[in-house]
Design a protein around this nucleic acid. Sequence first.
DNA 1: AAACTCACG
DNA 2: ACGTACGTGAGTTTC
Length: 889
Amino acid sequence: MEKIVLIDGHSILNRAFYGVPDLTNSAGLHTNAVYGFLNILFKILEEESPDYLTVAFDVKAPTFRHEIYKEYKGTRKPMPEELRQQVPALKEVLTAMGIKMMEKAGLEADDILGTLAKKAEKEGMEVSLVSGDRDLLQIATDVIKIRIPKTKGGKTEIEDYYAADVKEKYQVTPTAFIELKALMGDTADNIPGVPKVGEKTATELMVQFGTLENLYTHVDEVGKKSVRESLINNKELAYLSKTLAEINVDSPLDFSFEEARVHDFYTEEAYVVFKKLEFKNLLSRFEKGISNDSIIAGFQMVSGLPEAEEVFGKALESGGEVGFAILKDSTIKNNSSKGGKTGGFAGIALGFDSGRCFFIQCTGLVTEEYLRGKMAEVSSCTKLCCGDIKGAYDYLMCDDTQRFFDVILAAYLLNPLKNDYTIADVANEHLGLMIPEQAQRFGKASLLEALSQKPEEFTQYACFLAYVALKAAPVLREKLDEAGMLTLMNEIEMPLTYVLYDMEKEGILVKPQELKAYGEALTGRISELEQKIYKEAGTEFNINSPKQLGEILFDKLALPGGKKTKTGYSTAADVLEKLAPDHIIVADVLEYRGLAKLKSTYAEGLSAYIGEDNRIHSTFNQTITATGRISSTDPNLQNIPMRMELGRQIRKVFIPKEGCIFTDADYSQIELRILAHMSGDGQLIDAYRMHADIHRITASQVFHIPFDEVTDLQRRNAKAVNFGIVYGISSFGLSQGLSITKKEAAEYIEKYFATYPGVKNFLDKSVKDAREKGYVTTLFGRRRPVPELSSSNFMQRSFGERVAMNSPIQGTAADVIKIAMIKVHQRLKKEKLASKLILQVHDELLIETKKEEADKVQLILEEEMSRAAQLSVRLEIDLHEGNDWYEAK
DNA sequence: AAACTCACG
DNA sequence: ACGTACGTGAGTTTC
């Protein structure tokens, strides 16, 4: 028997929209609903393998049936903008996939679907009708199956209804379902229904009387008086509702089943559209369809020394750029293999302009050392491009990044919002090429396992890395240039890769015994507090569990504070701090938490990263943050305690090596200074020229008080406002920060803006720019897209506004310190100093300084950091030195 | 894997 | 009316 699948377009799109978290492509187009729709579509197609397929749409609501009863229209909420823009996108996708669509002015999708379903039934087909709402249940029969997808926790399950299933679940036949609905009404569909009759009463009535006709014939038999009267008084309404609820299964439609016949959906056109929408999971469906055969034909594995020599010779002679990839497992430093070198090394891939690519396997005479030597030679005189160059420097020789180009880094600059960046992604987005991800090819196998198990697949993979790097480089350069970020790339990000590589390699020396002792010193107090808390609570429980803690505090002990999070009570510090003065147990919990954090995250956490050289080699990531900052992982050395004295003590275990001291330099209020510069606000610029405590000046100017009479409270408030401005001010946020009312906060903000009108102007302009262009930029051209601004959700939109205000400031600060790092690193090298830059903490640089170089290092830091950008205010530096990190801050 | 909490700038 | 300050990473519990 032939089979047709009919889909209710708007209804499924709507379901998908609310069931799939927000997604946007890099052009800022929302795509979650289309994505969800396609997932449902593919699932259905896989299950049903139909012969025919049609998607029906309403032309626009409200239509035909609703027009009859105008008074009730307009209860439907307007479609959110994020959803509206996805309707044409979906139609584009379906068109590209060659899927038949039906829509007709004056007809609702329901009518089209109903009509087609009945038509197909008559032709002797099986019918699957997919819709998000239950209206369609009325046309279920023994061959017409209604399918209702439900998204439960990310998984889509589909409920199926044949006529019998409707009867089972709703106790009425599909035909009676119409009248059931007429009685109870449906606000979403503008069906009035009979007052006083809800779902329960309606079901009872239909079970008892079977039809509306019969109900009114025997209306006096209705038991409940109020219901009986309502039925009698609203007879007309009931029949009108029936008209509204009934799907027209005999609509005038030109339809030929042949047009709806299913064929290959994975067309070129569809591929292009999927790529535009950035559905990379779905793109894998095209792999069979689109062939990379002609590219792969140029790939080759090389295992012998003479052949390797030949390939390297080719690289050295190549006039143009060469793509390469180092095939090694990513460094795993976090397990107990302390200071562990890298994982397995499989070899090196090289790609040439001709399209010829070679995977040179590390085997026999072709040793790792040989390859390293050859790559060093090649890198010292050839233009090279790759992905993740920081991870390749171990195999390159020269620290002059001029000849290098990192396509991953370029992809990050073009869209810094993504979670990860892979060569396969770059191929998809920038070359329109489909290549499988590593995991897809080899699963969880290590590289060496993959090589031995699937050598041909591996060769293909390795060569693709080099091929894509080479082919994508000019494309990315062009895109960066268009976006005004080529200089940022060449002058800041690329040179920085080598600085970060050096910092990682250098690491920072720690005192392992001291760190251990610090942790052990905490243990006593922790168990003391643990026992005390159990006693105060009257029971033992897991203090680390917010769930259990919340129940103890707010249920068992009935402390005031109520709910806050989705899952239960909030036990966050700011909530507990309000209770602490009145309840010893809360104060104890807070102290316990503080100590437990220090012990687990820092004392024990850091210990696991100490290498055989007694140094910790963190990883500095350059493609993580949305604003341009770098991040530090494994371990994170950018969040070592500082604010509280006890935590700060941990810094005493970070020490310079023998013969060295630490020199630490940090920018003084770099973000506020950048704000002063970017806004050009005269008053704020002058404030900085006064060369005094900026928060006190702000207080003095905003509150119109002589500088010397500013109280500590006023200074504190002004400081909070300054912070707030940088974060993208909102009265609510400020009120939280200062524990004052929203109204008071709003007054502060108003006064601040009255004092510094240039700042207000600048922030407004940032938001306006972001709305118009879809992104904001830093002083050095770095972009951050702000797709949230086009959201119809108040919260998301407000977030977008704050992002638009904050990112240029935070991002410019990130640019500035990156420049400083490059310059400092260069100077140290140029002046042949042995001192090393080892850490960056956003506005701070730490140098392990040879004692005899201390003065020079201070001078270099001072000069290069303050010179990193020429602003209309000075960039001031605070310099410290010490015999450990604690002393040097 | 997600939620919560908390460390830093 | 809505319910948040901006940017990160890691440890723990819980599903």
